[in-house]
């Protein structure tokens, strides 16, 4: 199907991109295009203009700096897959990237687009909530940093203001005793999750001193499961704590019946996946101690 007509711009600077967005209220940013173009082909999105980020320098790359892992918004999923730094030190991120779409899609899909699109089915938002990540946005009034927990305001909506562009994702730098995992249940390769669970843990002297637990595609946005986090913190990660966390995560899920399954089924999937993700995160955190 043919997308609707639009004006195309490919500015060289963030300032120009932001100016174009403000001048055209019906404009949208174009990153990898792998969510936006399918929506345009179905006429679910009909932006009057597209502002392509591809020519703006400095928007992609992966590096550790100033206590964070910094990922440029235009970094492709395949770059995370091929990054030794991500694969060796950020297992939750490595797990997540591997289950997003398929290998050909991952060559173009960007991490920033995945976060900014804020589809409840996107996998990075839950991982970012579990990591306690933050997002850097550039806009007409300069640059600001937004905590992941303040970013996802509803399905396909974020706290980015008009004219703001997501430029970087920051994940707290991995240290001794940290580890995470992402567990996704999908019907087939390339499908969005029936349900998925992200867990990030910090161990201190054999006990869990910090926990992030978040859920994909079982609500209007990715859900941070605070009660599940509380069930883990202070424990030694034994079965009782994992069971309690799994129950709490299932209770935090707010799924609906659809072609991927009934709400009850999805809640059961969340329970099982939370247990598995927490158990794997714990093993990895111990190995990193």
């Amino acid at each position: 199907m043919i997308p609707p007509s639009f004006d195309y711009h490919a500015p060289d600077t963030l300032e120009e991109a932001s100016r174009l967005l403000l001048a055209n209220p019906e404009a949208k940013l174009l990153a990898g295009g792998h969510s936006l173009i399918p929506m345009m082909r179905f006429r679910l999105a009909e932006p009057a203009a597209l502002v392509d980020l591809r020519k703006i320098p400095g928007l992609s790359g992966i590096r550790e700096d100033g206590g964070s892992l910094r990922i440029g918004a235009m970094t492709r999923e395949s770059e995370l897959e091929k990054s030794d730094l991500v694969q060796s030190r950020y297992p939750l991120l490595a797990d997540t990237t591997r289950v997003i779409a398929d290998p050909v899609v991952r060559n173009l899909a960007t991490v920033g687009g995945n976060v900014a699109h804020a589809d409840p089915g996107n996998d990075h938002p839950a991982a970012m909530l579990a990591y306690r990540a933050s997002f850097v946005a550039a806009g007409p009034s300069g640059q600001r940093t937004i905590a992941a927990s303040d970013f996802f305001t509803g399905p396909f909506s974020t706290s980015l203001e008009e004219g703001e562009i997501l430029t970087e994702i920051r994940i707290p730098e991995a240290g001794p005793g940290s580890g995470g995992a992402y567990r996704k249940f999908e019907r087939k390769v390339g499908d969005y999750a029936v349900a998925a669970v992200a867990v990030q843990l910090q161990l201190d002297g054999g006990r869990i001193s910090g926990a992030g637990v978040a859920l994909t595609n079982v609500g209007l946005t990715a859900i941070q499961a605070g009660a599940a986090e509380a069930a883990l913190v202070g424990s030694d990660g034994g079965d009782a704590a994992l069971d309690a966390a799994a129950e709490a995560a299932a209770a935090a899920a707010d799924p609906t019946d659809d072609h991927r399954g009934s709400a009850d089924y999805k809640r059961a999937v969340v329970r099982v996946l939370t247990h598995r993700a927490a158990s794997s995160a714990l093993t990895r955190a111990r190995e990193a101690s």
């Binding site: 195309y8 490919a10 174009l30 295009g33 792998h34 173009i37 399918p38 597209l50 392509d52 591809r54 395949s78 290998p103 050909v104 899609v105 060559n107 173009l108």
Partner: peptide, 19 residues
């Protein structure tokens, strides 16, 4: 529709020619 775009497999039905 896969082609190699700068050497990398890409689904050419989901890329604008201008880009």
């Amino acid at each position: 529709c896969t082609v190699l775009l700068n050497g990398v497999p890409a689904k050419s039905c989901t890329v604008f020619a201008v880009a």
